[in-house]
Amino acid sequence: MTAPVGKKPVLTVKELVIEFQTERGVVRAVDGVSFELYAGQTLGIVGESGCGKTVTCLALLGLVPTPPGRIVSGSIELNGRNIVGLGDREMRNIRGRDISMIFQEPMTALNPVFTVGNQLCEVIRRHTDATRRQAHAQAVEMLAVVGIPAPAKRMGDYPHQLSGGMRQRVMIAMALSCNPSVLVADEPTTALDVTTQAQVIEQMVLLQEQFDMAVILITHDLGVVAETCEDVMVMYCGQVIEQAPASGLFTRPSHPYTAGLLASIPRIRRERLQELPVIRGMVPDLLSLPMGCRFSTRCEYADQRCQAQIPSLRTATGTDAAVACFKPLGEA
């Protein structure tokens, strides 16, 4: 990842391991994930269901449900302070002020029985000394910032009175109201229609520049990643398998899984293929992972070494990409 000269990361995750106790045994949902994030940077995390992308981000906010979940080892440094193991009270001070999160379905994240204004003011007053009146003014301003028309009027609305796009904007306003250094967005536009998605993405990009925030964007939509992120992290079965600047990742993927994912998406206005290229097989069960590389059971290049050893993340020759593969593409 491209580290800006002389800047300190706002977020440093080191060797994070998270396990869940299930009826069938212990599942390691996140297995040794490390990354750094700088102010003004947007990092995209992609991967399929169960790859650990959401759990990783929940950990950043101290929201891993414990039990059954547990952070086994590793550290998360937010603005220079390790937040792993902090108590509930301390986490509540950090959440919303230093790091915020927006979710896929704003209807379930907003409280249906309070007005939008009520919920926005609560966040502001919880973290600042603002008076009721100041908080109200600031809330109206935030709604205007995220592009809600007639913001003062919307303050009295309940979530069900708003459209999906408007609700997601309210969520964003709420997340940004205390000017956090990190914003985690988990599939923020997945539940929205394409035309609404385009509006919300445009708004998010503008706001990020305005607030100089660091953003983590979790999504399964590689198109959204290409349009918004400078850097991309690809996860598979709890591990980071490739991490690279977006410009390189999309044109010259190093890991066979990344390449397979990119090839298997139908694209608009591209010549119609009789058959889409596919990644054969299925994501393995996290309770019975393959011995070596976790992708080896589906990889067309896998050999004996891949089946026996787990490759660690290293720089692929001639690229800016870090890749966890013994035989990355483009390296003969």
Binding site: V194, T195, Q197, A198, I201, D221, L222, G223, V224, V225, A226, E227, A246, S247, F250, T251, L262, I265, R267, I268, R269
Partner: peptide
Amino acid sequence: ALMSAVPVPDPAR
């Protein structure tokens, strides 16, 4: 408008 709104996995575009 619908077509132009679809994000394309190509940062160069």
